[in-house]
Nucleic acid binder design. Structure first.
Lengths: 142, 142
DNA sequence: TAATAGTTGACAATTTTACTAGGGTATACT
DNA sequence: AGTATACCCTAGTAAAATTGTCAACTATTA
């Protein structure tokens, strides 16, 4: 399993905010009960997203969370990295120096895997997910 | 970090065996000292690969480990899955049922990520790594 | 039969994960 | 003003995963 609940829960929450974009703040309680995620835990995940500038909050009665930018401007990669850290398959790619030549053969593989992942998460926007979802919903309604 | 040391160390060891394919068994000590991996820990990883039929062992003096098949017949994916389990980004793809419709929007992302990873690891063979490596070595020698 | 080398199972330190608990602060509504 | 609502923040914590270590055992060969 590549993604922990941090990334999975966080992406679900971000998607929910994207669905409600432009419709005022969505409360923590609403999200956590809809997706069956612990309220306090989700709060911590959303705090990370807020600190990195992806979401904004409104305090007080009728407050809640909302995307700080358009869903078309936030990629899945931004959300996942904010929550999980850099998505590298190996230390080798994020600092560790390869002294032994032969190790580099495995490094090539890790680089390819990383490219494969980044290719997906950096080219998919929350807006795409919303579109995709409404398509699926229309199909289901038929 | 997507891969734990299991996958990283194990792939390095498998690559080493591929380098020495056809040249008799390679001892645990040789591999662990070359890659600076704990002998006993690496032993556990190699045991997994043996149980899944990717490597064979010879006990006693001059014994060691060797690939059970040609490097051209073993993919990186086989090695990584044997060590890390299925490479899914989310439970959602490996059993967990999606009851709430909206969750499926995130599921689509996870599927794409999984495809991206599988595309790399299932299409790269240990033999490819050996070839790649000898190319790099030749370049370095110039 | 001694030395080498893999086999097995128990166990242990450390880190990460996935929470829980609870007090603090801002806002809106009455 | 008071109160309920809802985010804010820090600390703690149990369980799991990670990353090993140790020791006794078995097989092989020189």
């Amino acid at each position: 399993m590549i993604l922990s609940t941090k990334g999975r829960y966080g992406l679900k929450a971000a998607f929910e905010l994207a669905l409600n974009y432009g419709g005022g703040p969505v409360s923590l309680k609403t999200i956590s009960s809809k997706y069956n995620i612990s309220e306090n835990y989700l709060e911590q995940l959303l705090a990370k997203l807020r600190k990195q500038g992806y979401i904004e909050t409104v305090r007080g009665v009728n407050g809640g969370y909302m995307l700080a930018r358009k869903p078309e401007e936030i990629t899945v990669g931004m959300i996942l990295r904010a929550l999980e850290g850099e998505m590298t398959p190996s230390d080798c790619l994020s600092g560790e120096v390869c002294t032994r030549e032969s190790i580099c053969a495995t490094r090539v593989i890790f680089e390819k895997i990383e490219m494969g992942i980044n290719n997906v998460i950096d080219n998919t926007y929350l807006g795409d997910m919303v579109k995709q979802n409404s398509k699926v919903m229309q199909e289901a309604a038929k």
